[in-house]
Amino acid sequence: MIAGRDQRRKFSNKLMLVLAAAATVLALLPLGSILLYVATKGLLALNWDFFTQLPKPVGEPGGGLANAIVGTLILVGLASVMGIPLGIMTGIYLAEFGRGRLAWLVRFTCDVMTGIPSIIVGIVVYGTIVVAMKRFSAIAGGVALAIIMLPLVTRTTEEMLKLVPNSLREASLALGASQWRTTYSIVLRSAMGGIITGSLLAVARVAGETAPLLFTALSSRYWHTGLDQRIASLPVYIYTYATTPYEEMHRLAWGAALVLVAMVLVTSIAARLAGRRAGGGR
């Protein structure tokens, strides 16, 4: 009620509102910087060789990361083959049958699993699969990535299925369709857009994972020769090349980062578009 107080209040109001907007801008600066560096430095590294040649030994110029690109695709493919069906099944269980304590526990486990550091998954897969096979392998890497995908796919599937109106289910059951046929043909189909979105987002997320591959798939300087062999991947190459002292390898690391970021972003955006087209997306 005193003039000075009102002045002060108005000032702190303006100040805090400006600070909130400034925080947003400040947080987006690193994003801009990262995308800019990855794009410019990455483009300089990309050429025909990058996509067709194997890595050269230390000190030799040139070469590419063709095996790592193929390797990443194989690893992500393996992970998807294992992780997506299991995740969808679990999601169906939660949405269609999941009531009571067990469902609560599964849901909770799922939430908690998304918070487990991915390097832990690496250790566990090493301790089971790598030790049992007595070698690093693409299979082990795929399993590690699948474990990381699983809770992501499950939760989106559940959420998307829950958006399907109950009247649709009842209509189908009333026509005499069995429950699994109802779920399969009616519910799943109308939630398909959402499930694809969720799965693609999970794919995008694991494509860039590095830590769980370090002691499962390891890396390789050669073409992929079999699922029971170690395999190259873009993230691991970025890590190893960035931490060497060689210019040439830094250059390739930026190139790999550009390819990886492009893959991840394209998948993420495709996921959103799929969700939007299905109408169920947000």
Binding site: L31, I34, V38, Y239, L265
Partner: peptide, 23 residues
């Protein structure tokens, strides 16, 4: 803007590392 902030989460950790080392 929400989308851009979410984009920060989509960038792989190893790319952050690369940017960290050189920038």
């Amino acid at each position: 803007v929400s989308f851009l902030v979410e984009l920060l989460a989509a960038i792989p950790s190893v790319v952050y590392g690369l940017w960290g080392v050189f920038v």
